[in-house]
Amino acid sequence: MEKNFLEAEEVEAIEVSIEADTLTQNGNASEEIELLDRCYENEVYIEEEEICTLAISCTDYDSCIAWGNAVIAELEESYGSLVLEESVATGDEGITVLTTYDVDNENEAIYTNANISKEEMDYHANLWFSFSWLIPEKYRKDINKFEVFKSGDTLAYVSLHDKYGKYWTLGMNNKNIELASETLVTYLHEYAHFLSLNHTQIDYWKGEKSCKSLYLQDSGCFYKEAYLTDFYSKFWESGDHGELQDFYVSKYAMSSPEEDFAESFAHFVLTQTPTGDTVREQKLLFFYQFEDLVELRTEILSRASTWVVRSVVENE
């Protein structure tokens, strides 16, 4: 593995810490710290995205896995599980779109011609920023529309909005999700759909009869090298599925290969590397075979650590 695994300048190794001493275990802020207008000493400022992230102190595949596990352990000690959920309902049924925005990823801004108040605009911008904080800009450039909707149970969705399968829309419920952990899982779940269903993964011009590889009714014809082609062949093709706790990370993952992939990806990022041999654990280990996904995990965790600290304090 080359030393420039993360394609970043070398930095001094910094002990993993999220400055938990400035917070009590239930998230109360120290009066001396103004969290939202500066970075902690162990964080770096990304000017283009106007966010603070934890300084990454790893340079290759193995050290980045270990670094990510240490970050997760620290966050879990302070805030509990990062994957605690009450509902992960997604999809675009039973929703009413309130406002649609164009996303300028380069300038980290959203725009609309809709007649809405500044208060609504600010709230919607914060919803988008909450998602974009977690996902580095280079990985989400093709998500260039954003919709805010109301719905009784749907939390979020992603959908194509061009016939070539390149550009995507992210939809988010207007109602704020109460659990920070559920917000994290929801964002990564939806990003995993984009990651696994975009034009580099699916041949949108082939129907079921002409497809020579994996065809899924709700998605299309996957290329042979697609993530889901491999995932399906390992975990769904045989039809051998057992109890929830041994085969799936959540009940929602049982509904389809696409949802299983998305839920498993979120747990791959937000939980420590498993050491067991259940099918459930093998699904998480599946992602570790891809160096680019381990790199993505590392970058997301550097952001999730600062996102969690500020989200907990801001919601107090």
Rank of each mutant, 00 (worst) to 15 (best):
K3W: 12
N4A: 15
E10F: 09
A13Y: 14
E15M: 14
V16D: 01
T22D: 07
N26C: 13
G27H: 03
E31Q: 13
E32V: 15
E32D: 13
L36P: 05
D37W: 08
R38D: 13
R38V: 08
C39E: 02
V44E: 10
A55W: 01
T59W: 02
I65H: 05
W67Q: 02
N69I: 08
I72P: 00
L82H: 02
L84A: 13
V88C: 05
G94C: 09
V97F: 04
V97D: 06
Y101Q: 07
E106R: 10
I110S: 04
N115M: 14
E120F: 09
M121H: 04
Y123L: 14
I135P: 02
I135Q: 00
E137C: 12
I143A: 06
K145G: 06
T154D: 08
A156Y: 00
Y157D: 00
L160P: 01
K163C: 09
Y164N: 15
G165N: 05
K166E: 14
Y167M: 11
Y167P: 01
W168L: 09
W168C: 04
K175G: 05
N176A: 12
E178R: 12
L179N: 03
A180F: 03
T186M: 09
T186W: 04
Y187S: 02
E190K: 01
E190R: 02
Y191L: 11
L195N: 01
L195D: 01
S196E: 04
N198E: 07
I202C: 02
Y204L: 15
Y204R: 15
K209M: 11
S210T: 11
Y215M: 10
L216F: 05
L216K: 05
Q217G: 10
Q217Y: 10
D218Q: 13
G220S: 06
F222S: 01
Y227L: 11
T229P: 03
D230K: 14
F235D: 00
W236I: 09
E237R: 06
G239M: 11
H241D: 05
H241T: 03
E243Q: 14
E243V: 12
E243S: 14
Y248E: 04
Y252H: 12
Y252V: 07
M254C: 05
S255G: 04
E258A: 13
E258P: 06
E259L: 11
F261G: 02
F265G: 00
A266P: 03
L270E: 01
E281D: 09
K283S: 03
K283F: 03
K283G: 01
F287W: 05
F290W: 09
E291G: 11
A304N: 03
S305H: 02
V308W: 00
R310F: 02
E314H: 10
